[in-house]
């Protein structure tokens, strides 16, 4: 799960990193957004169910949707056979 500040919210950390990249000569980088990354090990019958649970968790706790957006990816193979 990836949580980042919404595009409308200024991200001073991302801006500082962008400035640093610029001074390192990476002029091709146009923008940087810093965010958070969560790995959830979810027991579910299907990828869809895992997606539903994870999305609910993101809305409820892991992201503050006033200022943050999120993206969820499900990898059904991870954890198989454990």
């Amino acid at each position: 799960m990836f949580v980042t500040l919404k595009p409308s919210v200024f991200d001073p950390q991302g801006q500082t990193i962008l400035d640093a990249l610029s001074s390192l000569g990476y002029e091709s980088v146009r923008d940087v957004r810093q965010g958070k990354f969560f790995e959830l090990d979810v027991v579910a019958d299907s990828a869809q169910e895992a997606m539903t649970i994870s999305t609910e968790i993101a809305d409820k706790l892991l992201a503050n949707t006033v200022i943050e957006g999120y993206r969820v990816e499900v990898d059904p193979k991870r954890g198989e056979g454990d």
Partner: peptide, 10 residues
């Protein structure tokens, strides 16, 4: 209503 972000100069 609203949210509190990091201070502008962090």
């Amino acid at each position: 209503d609203g949210a509190l972000l990091r201070n502008r100069r962090l």
